[in-house]
Amino acid sequence: MIAISSGKGGVGKSTVTANIAVAMADVGLSVGVVDADIYGPSIPRMLGIPAVKPSMAPDQRVIPAEAQGVKVISMAMLTDDDAPAILRGPMVTKYLQMFVRQVDWGDLDVLLLDLPPGTGDIQLTLAQAFPLSGAVVVSTPQDVSLKIARRGLRMMEQVNVPILGVIENMSGFTCPSCGTVTHIFHQGGGEAIARELGVDFLGKVPLDPNVVDCGDEGRPLVRDAPDSPAASAYRGIAATLGGQGEDTGGIATPFAWTLSDGTGKPVPAQATAGGSAERLAALDHAEGALILRWCDGTEQRLADRDLRLACQCAQCREEMSGARLVDPDSVPLDIGLTRVWSVGNYALGMAFSDGHDTGIYTFKALRALSGTELEDV
């Protein structure tokens, strides 16, 4: 699962997504695309998918549309062409969950998530609910776009989504008559920001009028003009991303572990010296404490009551000052954990015997808690 994101709108992110999806399909990969831009869906138009509502499989899952060898689900398939999606945050979250979990994708090699611009509800929902293999950030070369792209990169880093690289779109225009390259939006900014942030630079996609015509008419450029510089750039990016998504270590997510009967407990992963300090290798529970083994070999024991008192949710902490709202004397000494579940690749959710279950414990916050830390491997 690879998220294609951008800090701001108008950088051509959906065009990039559509073309690299088709390029991946052309080399034999089974590819799906979730058009996660609920308010402004455009992927079906770019791939030439007619405005027909999807059908249902016998198991009540949605059958995705298919065109150009790519499976697609989009809000554009569920509403009329000019009908606005007037939805609050919870409904947007519901649709996103449905687009991934309740669609009959079959066996996919790659699922691309075409995100809307920004760092809001949709980005956070996907990062929390699904085990993303990584994210790609699309930007144009001008400084204002790159500055906002940097924020998008930082957001993904904060929720432990690996950054697979930066794509510089609209990178120079080649005159069809004389061959002169004009850098309308400056040049080299994408490479510079990738170098500055220590991530891969995936490539430059030049401006090409055919990109607009092909997108409007549902003919992906990689098929319609395969020898063009832009099509070559798309294929190069697709080849790089097609090899991504290998196991980055740690327990598999998502999981939901019920402590009373052990159901859903994640299978332990290998912990080795030199491994990631921000990835969990195993969880256990004994004698009123949660035991966390991290991929760098560190083992940490955190008492259930200490975890309850450390909750940072709005019920337990004052939002502005961070002052504790819950009275420690009101938390029973024998309080215990009842459930533990994954929140994306960056946090755990926990439920306690007093019924409290709204806290999110980031891996960074858990590592900072003063529990019993045993010897490293």
Rank of each mutant, 00 (worst) to 15 (best):
A239G: 14
A239D: 15
T240Y: 10
L241P: 07
L241C: 01
G243I: 10
Q244E: 13
T248P: 12
G250E: 01
A252H: 12
A252M: 11
T253E: 08
F255R: 02
W257F: 00
L259A: 05
S260G: 13
D261K: 08
G262Y: 03
T263P: 12
K265N: 09
K265Q: 14
P266Y: 06
P266S: 03
P268A: 05
A271R: 04
G274M: 08
G274T: 06
S276K: 00
S276E: 03
A277L: 08
A277Y: 03
E278F: 01
E278V: 05
R279G: 04
L280D: 05
L280K: 07
D284N: 13
D284Q: 03
H285W: 06
H285A: 15
H285Y: 08
A286D: 14
E287W: 09
G288H: 07
G288L: 07
G288I: 09
A289H: 05
I291G: 05
I291E: 01
W294H: 00
C295E: 15
C295W: 11
G297C: 03
G297P: 01
T298H: 11
T298I: 15
T298K: 12
T298D: 09
E299P: 04
E299Y: 01
Q300D: 07
L302G: 06
L302P: 00
L302E: 06
D304Q: 09
R305M: 04
R305E: 00
R305Q: 02
D306H: 06
D306M: 08
L307H: 08
L309Y: 00
A310E: 00
C311R: 09
C311L: 05
Q312H: 12
A314N: 13
C316N: 04
R317V: 10
E319T: 14
E319D: 15
E319F: 13
E319W: 13
E319A: 15
E319Q: 15
M320Y: 13
S321Y: 07
S321N: 07
A323N: 14
A323G: 14
R324P: 13
R324A: 15
L325E: 12
L325G: 11
D327R: 02
P328F: 00
P328K: 00
D329Y: 06
P332R: 09
P332E: 09
L333C: 10
L333Q: 14
D334I: 12
I335V: 15
G336S: 12
G336I: 08
R339M: 13
R339Q: 15
W341L: 08
W341Y: 11
W341M: 10
N345H: 09
Y346V: 00
Y346C: 09
Y346Q: 04
Y346S: 09
L348Q: 04
M350I: 13
S353A: 05
